[in-house]
Amino acid sequence: MSRSCLIVDDSRMVRRVAGRIIRELDFDLAEAENGQEAMDQCRMKMPDAILLDWKMPVMDGLSFLKRLRKEPGGDQPVIVFCTAERDVYKIAEALDAGANEYVMKPFDSDVIQSKFFEAGLLG
């Protein structure tokens, strides 16, 4: 059974780029434009991995992260938090809130692959 990854980013361009990378890693793909959409999708089917943007309208990445981790089964997905900030406070905040890994934008397939590998998603 193939694994699934939810990409959460309000930019369609970023979702496309990330989606191509994730598909190459043999993941089934789902997309959400913001944290609220992502939460709705997670309640229907919890993905194995989530690539999560920080700044989004409606519900930002951090709010989503905190809420998801309180959901039943919300501790299961490996969450890779994406940020364009080089502010280590933001990174630390995300890790403290329950993110497993983080990547800095712009990311590439090597970075995503290594993060998924470190998180045990790739064998």
Partner: peptide
Amino acid sequence: IVRALVVQYQHGLQEI
């Protein structure tokens, strides 16, 4: 860094 981000945006656009 700005350029790399624009290029990534461009790649997404091209895919769309």
